[in-house]
Design a protein around this nucleic acid. Structure first.
Length: 257
DNA sequence: ATGACTCCCAGTGGGAGA
């Protein structure tokens, strides 16, 4: 079984690349972030014609998430229950017995900003909800654009980024708190080349120079740990013309485990 | 050369992303 996450930075722009990637990768489920489409503009017909079911939760201009799957997802939840949030950042559903939670975590902009306060409040709410969700659905996968680089080895220039957004102690503590709920960072279950990132700035030739961050993650509930057979970042779409600034992250689970 | 972005909605610039 293959699950994946991809921040597409505008589904309107990236739909052809998404269809190509789906055809090549054949995931069982894929969560998208930054669709940047109101719900009436979601391209469900084009996806359905290509063989994919969709659930989506969007808004104008910013944010927007979706859950695509070969089989229809059930028990769909949009946003964090109990959190009063105008921003479309979460979609969850059950696919083939796996509880799939897709999230577009707030950016936070700067540690001294109102947006950072919102990021902390959002992370608190996510943690509270996921504690319950994991209890109800131990076979859970949380994936998406976390906008957190968990460790210095997830940052191309840790000295320059020290204390900066994505790298603050507060954000990293929240990442560890999610792990503490009983999940594992699937990427770190395996060896990878150093300087493996999931995001590269559009500016400064960052991709060519491989200056990036690992901020897109897949956390797997402990009940699924033994089923995890691979977790990789697929850099290929970042080499497209007009790419997203993020690369997909892909998880493989052993069937029947 | 040590520079070099891309969305969106606006409306010929500005905010946001990370």
């Amino acid at each position: 079984m293959k699950l994946a996450t991809w921040n597409v930075n505008s589904l309107g722009v990236r739909l052809p690349q998404l269809l190509d990637w789906l055809a090549a990768q054949q995931p069982d489920a894929l969560v998208l972030q930054e669709t940047k489409l109101t719900d009436d503009k979601f391209p469900h017909d084009a996806l359905r014609e290509a063989g994919w079911h969709s659930a989506w939760h969007g808004q104008k201009t910013y944010n927007g998430v979706a859950l695509l799957s070969r089989e229809p997802a059930t028990d769909i939840i949009k946003n964090i229950p109990g959190l009063d949030d105008e921003q479309a950042r979460v979609i969850a559903g059950t696919v083939a017995g796996i509880r799939v939670v897709g999230g577009y975590f707030p950016n936070g902009q700067a540690p001294d900003s109102d947006k950072f306060v919102y990021k902390m409040r959002w992370l608190d709410a996510l943690q509270g909800w996921l504690r319950q969700e994991l209890a109800a659905h131990p076979r859970l996968v949380l994936m998406g654009d976390f906008n957190i680089a968990p460790e210095d080895r997830d940052v191309y220039d840790p000295a320059a980024w020290a204390g900066q957004i994505h790298c603050t102690d507060e954000e990293r503590a929240h990442f560890q708190a999610l792990i503490g709920l009983g999940m594992v960072d699937a990427f770190r279950m395996f060896e990878h080349p150093p300087r493996t990132w999931s995001w590269w700035d559009y500016r400064n030739l960052a991709f060519r120079k491989n200056q990036g961050l690992r901020i897109d993650h897949i956390l797997v509930g402990e009940a699924l740990r033994s089923a995890v057979s691979a977790c990789v970042i697929d850099k290929l779409p970042r080499k497209n013309e007009r790419p997203s600034d993020h690369a997909p992250v892909v998880l493989e689970l052993t069937p029947g485990a």
